[in-house]
Amino acid sequence: MTREREVLAELRRILADLIGNPMPLDAPAKTPLLRDGIGLDSLGATILLTRIQTLFGVDVASEDLNLDALASIGTLAAFIGERIG
C-alpha cells in the first residue's frame, strides 16, 4: 500500500511536469488522464507511458492493449504498483 502511494505521488509529479501546471499534484485519484480530466491528448499520454517505462520499467502499452490503466491517475498508479510489487 505504501508502495502504491509512492507511485501515486511520483505519477502526480510526472503529470504536473508534463502539462506544466501543478493541478495534478492534488487532483483526486479518480481524475481521468485524458480529455476533460488532466487533459492529455494521445501524444501526451504516449510521452507519459514512455516516462513510466523508463522510471518503473513497466511497459503499459504492451501489457494492457485496451489501455484501461489510463482511465484515471489512480488506475494507472495501481497498474504500476501491482507490477513492481
Binding site: 485524458l34 480529455r35 494521445s42 501524444l43 499520454a45 504516449t46 507511458l49 502499452a61 492493449l65 485496451n66 489501455l67 484501461d68 489510463l70
Partner: peptide, 9 residues
C-alpha cells in the same frame, strides 16, 4: 501507441 490510445478512448 498514440493511435492505440485514440482508438481505445
Amino acid at each position: 501507441v498514440p493511435l492505440r490510445i485514440a482508438l481505445t478512448s
